[in-house]
Design a protein around this nucleic acid. Structure first.
Lengths: 210, 210
DNA sequence: ACAAAAGTTGACCAAAGTGTCAACTTTACA
DNA sequence: TGTAAAGTTGACACTTTGGTCAACTTTTGT
């Protein structure tokens, strides 16, 4: 029965997962200070005191969520690789970023709010990691520029353009929906976004006849 | 002395202005729920109870700030005009957006936070206004496309790209600074951003030899 | 079957924060 | 100069919220 037990999620793992999932939704909507532990408890189907059995404080729940988001922060960057042609690399990157934004709206908004308000829960280690990852991929892009595969463009500003354009749809959904004349964004809105962003930015950075 | 009095700002106007200015800085950093009236009072140099003399509630201060921000929301769009050539229009637009972002960082972050958390303080009227203004400028861009002055691009997604790319620097300053390998963004970072965004996006949307 | 460990929970407490108010001071006006 | 209006403010009331705890129940392991 030990094997069955190992396969079944333990009570503590299940409850921690439920609490974090509820926390993501509510912190995304209401921010750290606007969120009540009682709300997280209610959404988790647990008594409030029980939440404190699994997490020592509200801040610990929030930090656990932030660390979880950081681990996946650079997933899409794997496409920016010297083994690929830049056109394909950027298309895949833009698509992956938009897919993440569409599928993880609450996470996107939570992380965005955290940054906008000063990134007070990001540690120096987090930021150093993000900086190193960025530097590594800037180097790949600079290599493409040096070999003539890309027009001369500031790679750092290019990445900012790409991050901003792709994250906007999930983060600023009310304005994105209004801007697109829609009440709510759907899969084809994200696909149209991938097309518009890819075509516009790729034409802007690839040599002619690219 | 009536004339002198008219010229001098009345006590109530001065205090309301000071309270709103303090409110912008603190709401931007801490969000609506994370901000304490006592903090706004202290930053204003007024006793807390006095803040309630001028504004009936914390929410009234916040709403007044949001309405103020809405009135200037579309200032930069004036450059998107049929009287201009698209290349010039977009360059001016991008520059104006970046200038606003650089000079009004706190306002940008406050407004961004508001949208990300669901735009709960924006009224239907506000959103209808923003939608109408956007529609009008989408029509101008569609006209340029129809006349061959622009490549076929979805104007709505193009505006989203432009908004996202230009606002990012002020809104996500910690990540923008890290991405640029800087500790803090300066005027020349914004100028480099204007160059990168203009060159990349304009090459992406203007017919060849543009 | 029993004991230990893990999990649950209603009630509670201390601190924080919004907002109020009566009494006062300052300004404006006739 | 005197009065009315505007502005100021320390103390307070009330509500909310993060977090605690003792006592209980359930699960796990021997």
């Amino acid at each position: 029965m030990a094997k069955a037990r190992d396969q079944e999620e333990r009570i503590s793992e299940r409850n921690r997962r439920i609490i974090l999932k509820a926390g993501i939704e509510i912190f995304a909507r209401k921010g750290f200070d606007g969120t009540r532990i009682a709300e997280i408890a209610e959404a988790s189907g647990l008594p409030k005191a029980n939440v404190y059995y699994y997490f020592s404080s509200k801040e610990e729940i929030y930090r656990a969520i932030i660390e979880h988001l950081i681990t996946g922060w650079d997933n899409a960057l794997k496409f920016i690789s010297p083994e690929r042609e830049p056109a394909e690399a950027f298309r895949l990157y833009i698509k992956a970023k938009l897919d993440y934004a569409r599928k993880n709206g609450a996470e996107s908004r939570l992380f965005a709010s955290e940054i906008i308000q000063g990134a007070r829960f990001l540690t120096k280690k987090d930021r150093d990691h993000m900086r190193r990852v960025t530097d590594r991929h800037v180097t790949v892009v600079d290599g493409w520029i040096a070999s003539g595969k890309l027009l001369p463009v500031d790679a750092r500003h290019l990445f900012i353009m790409l991050w901003a354009s792709t994250q906007f749809y999930a983060e600023f959904e009310p304005v994105a929906a209004d801007g697109l004349g829609k009440s709510r964004l759907k899969v084809d809105d994200y696909e149209a976004a991938a097309t518009a962003i890819s075509e516009t930015i790729l034409r802007g950075i690839l040599p002619a006849a690219g």
